[in-house]
């Protein structure tokens, strides 16, 4: 798509909304272990994925994020026992709905990264960054100020 031709200097901006107990700790571990990952991600720490209003995702897209990643504890490992399981239902429906209206599926990603998975965190960020890079800059839903 020609409209999505990125200027050569363009770098994807990715908002990662992550839970305090698993993914944030996983990101920390990646840092401590000096595992490299792309600097395209801006991390927002929340207590639990169950605390994430799906609106955060939509709002991030409106504010110009090229991609949004939500990550929390693996099912069964939630610090609050079931927060991630409620979140899973919300995100399953949200992701489908957003792609139904025409927002590219890869702009919204959901995954699990535990506190011991520094390596996985880095892979997730690499993978998401590449997927979003392939889509080009976000145009849909983005509020022009």
């Amino acid at each position: 798509m020609s409209e999505n031709q990125a200027p050569s200097s363009w770098e994807p901006k990715i908002i990662a909304i992550v839970c305090n107990w698993c993914t944030y700790a996983g990101a920390d571990l990646a840092g401590i272990s000096r595992i490299q990952y792309p600097p395209n991600v801006r991390i927002i720490r929340v207590p639990c994925t169950g605390r994430i209003n799906p609106f955060y995702v939509v709002k991030a897209l409106q504010a110009g994020a090229d991609g949004v990643l939500v990550s929390g504890c693996h099912p069964g490992e939630c610090h609050y026992l079931t927060g991630n399981l409620s979140a899973r239902r919300k995100f399953a429906t949200l992701k489908r709905f957003l792609s139904y209206i025409g927002v590219e599926g890869d702009r919204t990603m959901f995954t699990w990264v535990s506190a011991s998975e520094g390596e996985r965190f880095s892979q997730v960020i690499k993978g998401v960054t590449e997927a979003v890079r392939a889509l080009g800059p976000a145009r849909k839903l983005v509020k022009q100020l």
């Binding site: 990643l69 099912p75 069964g76 079931t82 399981l85 409620s86 899973r88 239902r89 919300k90 995100f91 399953a92 429906t93 992701k95 489908r96 990603m109 959901f110 995954t111 699990w112 996985r120 892979q123 997730v124 690499k126 993978g127 998401v128 997927a131």
Partner: peptide, 22 residues
Amino acid sequence: PPLSQFKEDDREDFIYDPQKAK
């Protein structure tokens, strides 16, 4: 209502897996 509940085995084929994505 479906979003007021969950099951342990709810579908999660939408969850991103960096291994598979490669």
